[in-house]
Design a protein around this nucleic acid. Structure first.
Lengths: 128, 128
DNA sequence: TGAACAGTTCAATCCAAATTGGATTGTATT
DNA sequence: AATACAATCCAATTTGGATTGAACTGTTCA
C-alpha cells in the first residue's frame, strides 16, 4: 500500500518540523491561517520587535511554507501567506511517518530473549 | 463543524512537536514503530551512548508518547513502546491546527488599505 | 530634496537544551 | 559475597539557535 519509509523520509519530516516547532513560528503560522498577514499586526499580536518577526519570516519563507507579496499600492508593506502545496506536503509526510498502522510488534534483535535460545535447545537433546 | 482553535490548542500542539522534533528522538520514534524496542539496539542503530538514549527516552516517556516495560525474565532490560492513544491525540491536534480548510483570506486589520477607507467615504458626500 | 516609514541585514550576546563523563541503583550471575 | 551488567542519575560543558540593538535598503510623502 504505502511506500516504505526511508531514512530520508524521516529526515525530510524532521526538517519541516524544525521550522514549525518554534513557539513563535507556530503562532505566526496560526495567525496566517486566520487571515492575519500584515507584518505589523503580527508584531502587535505576538509582542515581538520587527526585526525578530523578519527573522522568523525568513526561516518560514526559506522553507517554502510561507510566501511573500508586496502591497500593490504601497510597496513598503508586505503580506505573508501560507503556501498551500507546501502545507499539503508537510501534512502528508507527517501522516505517513507517524501512521499508527506502521507500528510493529517487538523484533527481538537483542536482550535476554534473543541469545539464550540456542542454549535451551541444546539442553534437552542428550537426556531424551 | 470543528471546534475553534484556541491559543491553548496551538500551545498543546507546540509542546508535542517540541518532543518529537529533535532529530534523534524522531529517529527513535521511527525505530519504535518498526518494532525495535530494545534500548541497546537503538543505541547501536543510532550510534548514541546509553546515557544519552536514556535521557531522550525520559523526555519521550514524560510526554506520554512512549511507555516502558521491564523484561519479565531479566529485569535489567527494558523495552519501549509507542503509546497509541497519545499518538492519536498528537495526530488529531496536528490535523486540526494545520487544517488547510482553516485558511482565511486576508483580514485587512492594518496596512495602507485599511486606514484610507474613511477618507474615501468622506470625499464624495459634499459634492453630491 | 529630505524626512518618515516598513522591512531587512548584520554582528554581538544570550540562553535553553544537547551532549559528555562519571557515579549510582538495582538486578542477575558465579 | 562478589562481580558483571543494563539502565539511570547527576554535574559540568558545549553549542546551535533565539534574541537584541544598531545600521542599512528601498519606498512614500511633504
Amino acid at each position: 500500500m504505502t511506500q516504505p519509509i526511508t531514512e530520508t523520509t524521516v529526515a525530510e519530516l524532521q526538517s519541516w518540523l524544525q521550522v514549525i516547532t518554534h513557539p513563535k513560528r507556530l503562532k505566526i503560522i496560526n495567525l496566517l491561517m486566520e487571515g492575519i498577514q500584515c507584518n505589523c499586526e503580527i508584531g502587535e499580536r505576538l509582542d515581538m520587535p520587527r526585526n525578530l518577526i523578519s527573522h522568523h519570516m525568513g526561516i518560514l519563507r526559506q522553507s517554502g511554507l510561507v510566501d511573500v507579496e508586496r502591497d500593490s499600492a504601497d510597496a513598503r508593506w508586505v503580506y505573508f501567506t501560507i503556501n498551500q502545496p507546501a502545507l499539503a506536503q508537510l501534512r502528508t509526510l507527517f501522516d505517513v511517518v507517524l501512521n499508527p498502522a506502521r507500528i510493529q510488534p517487538r523484533q527481538p534483535g537483542c536482550g535476554p530473549q534473543s541469545a539464550p535460545i540456542e542454549f535451551v535447545d541444546a539442553e534437552p537433546l542428550p537426556s531424551a
